[in-house]
Simulated assay, not measured.
Amino acid sequence: MSKDFDKRPRGGRPPERRRERRFAPVSPGDRRPDQLWLYGIHAVAAALGNPRRTILRLAATPNALARLKEEGVPLPATVEEAENRALDRLVGDGAVHQGVAALVEPLDALPLTMLGDARLIVVLDQVTDPHNVGAIMRSAVAFGAEAIVTTGRHAPTETGVLAKSASGALEWINHVEVPNLARALTELGELGFTRVGLDSEGEATLETAMAGERIALVLGAEGKGLRRLTRETCDTVARLDMPGAIKSLNVSNAAALALYVARRHLDAPAG
């Protein structure tokens, strides 16, 4: 194990400062075109176990490293021993890194043709908050969805913030990126997906909107909701019936409920 983080040679800049200028993002989750820092036990452990992920560096406190070993996480040959304050400088003040950070290459997004025999997917229409997207990924994995579909623009890039919010789900769900969402929804319909848009004023209840053996849940950004062309390309726009005074939910909470309903429909016995 390397202990370069603790060495401070006389008369020179600390090694972590020199590395920081080369590797560290300007702010938490900020990403260079070819690399980013992931942090937090779950996010890093999942990345280490993902054969599609290229790990460039791993820095951890002794306690965090012991926890990774206890969980049987595969570790690279070289691990840099770091104190919490050194990790703070790498990933940014305020990032809850839990004593571990990994410098990685971003994952490649997949084309729509890679959906294969997927039965449940989530389509995001300009949902840009990385906390929400990460939470949606976590729920999607929990309910067995195979993919998240976003556009190349108006969607968050892969960042440490998103990965931390996803709690490992970033490594376990396929990310499909499309240039045009309405065209992609049309293709999904041709592939046999029932495209269910979510809107607080939808004409149908979510439960009655579920149909067929393949479901694509379509969610819009908070505030704006689904764009007009997106709504028109869905088979139905459905609402979550809520008897309370508040009639809408955060998009990540709405996604979790919709995924639950969709999974119950897909797993129901035929007939």
Rank of each mutant, 00 (worst) to 15 (best):
M1L: 13
R8T: 11
G11C: 15
R18W: 09
R19E: 00
V26L: 14
S27P: 15
R32E: 00
Q35T: 07
Q35G: 05
L38P: 06
L38T: 02
Y39G: 03
I41Q: 03
N50W: 07
P51V: 07
R52D: 06
R53Y: 10
R53H: 09
T54Q: 14
T61Y: 05
A66T: 05
L68G: 03
G72V: 13
V73L: 11
P74K: 15
L75W: 09
P76Y: 06
E80N: 09
A86I: 12
R89K: 03
V91W: 03
V100H: 00
E105D: 07
L107N: 06
P111F: 08
M114N: 08
L115Y: 00
R119C: 07
L120V: 14
L124H: 08
I136E: 00
A140R: 01
A147W: 00
I148C: 10
I148F: 06
T150V: 13
R153V: 15
R153P: 08
T159A: 07
W172A: 08
N174I: 04
H175M: 11
H175P: 09
E177C: 13
N180H: 14
A182Q: 05
A184T: 01
E190W: 07
F193Q: 00
F193M: 08
G197R: 04
G197E: 04
L198W: 01
S200D: 07
S200Y: 12
I215F: 12
G220F: 10
E222L: 11
K224V: 12
G225E: 01
G225C: 08
L229S: 15
T233M: 12
C234I: 03
D235A: 13
D241L: 15
M242L: 13
G244N: 04
A245Y: 11
S252A: 15
R264A: 01
H265C: 05
D267F: 08
A270S: 14
G271V: 12
